[in-house]
């Protein structure tokens, strides 16, 4: 059973940095902060905008904004939540600018974001690990995430990929915990559907008699 996502390579937490030093512009302390968080911020940005150049722009803009705003940082949220929030906003703004689409996280869910009833019922969990983790399968996993509406994608990335809690994800995105859970559920169900289509085809080709139920 899956509980809260594992704290996988999470950066140092807020306690490890001196807010006092950061607020007065201590450059060495800021460099430590950048070192600790730049990797995760870049990775998150890359998964939202799906383009290395745009991800780098988001990364730089995030820390430039953080540098300017640190003196007023009130510490009510953790530094990591605050940085994730700046980065997510930057990434969504960039998508909006590039694609001329309006993306608002607090709007009601559109029709294409509603709960999806499972259509594909194939038990593919028995496929061997080398098949599930092949480079082709990994590429498909990435592609599947890119098909999610942005409002679902960011929730999935923060919760399941970055390992933030429901509460932290809500703080980053300005959403209630209920809204985070709902969007996470919809994102996961859509991904399950896509992966079932992909891996189910491999079961069919390997074993024509399959385990379709």
């Amino acid at each position: 059973m899956i509980n809260e996502p594992v704290e996988r390579d999470r950066p140092k937490r807020v306690e490890d940095f001196s807010l006092e030093k950061l607020r007065v512009g201590d450059r060495a302390e800021f460099a430590r902060l950048v070192e600790a968080y730049s990797g995760v911020i870049y990775r998150l940005a890359l998964r939202i905008v799906s383009n290395p150049q745009d991800a780098e722009d988001v990364l730089q803009e995030t820390f430039l904004k953080a540098l300017r705003a640190l003196k007023n940082f009130d510490g009510r949220s953790s530094l990591s939540t605050w940085l994730y929030r700046i980065a997510t906003n930057e990434a969504l703004m960039l998508l909006r600018k590039n694609r001329r689409v309006v993306i608002s996280l607090d709007e009601p869910l559109e029709n294409d974001e509603q709960e999806m009833e499972p259509l594909q019922i194939v038990d593919w969990c028995c496929l061997p690990e080398n098949e599930l983790m092949s480079s082709e399968a990994r590429a498909y996993l990435d592609k599947a995430v890119e098909t999610l509406p942005h409002s679902l994608r960011v929730v999935f990335l923060l919760r399941d990929i970055e390992g933030l809690s429901t509460l932290e994800t809500g703080e980053v995105l300005g959403l209630s915990e209920t809204a985070v859970k709902t969007r996470l559920s919809r994102a996961r169900m859509r991904l399950r559907e896509l992966l079932t289509g992909y891996f189910g085809a491999r079961i069919d080709s390997a074993r024509p008699a399959g385990v379709d139920v």
Partner: peptide, 29 residues
């Protein structure tokens, strides 16, 4: 559905941390 949903999440969690920030991106930052 539950088994495949659980496997979906676990596959993403297993494969997630693969991408590293390139050194030149870090230097420009």
């Amino acid at each position: 559905v539950i088994d495949s949903l659980r496997k979906t999440v676990s596959l993403y969690q297993q494969t997630a941390p693969a991408s590293e920030m390139p050194d030149d991106v870090r230097e420009r930052l």
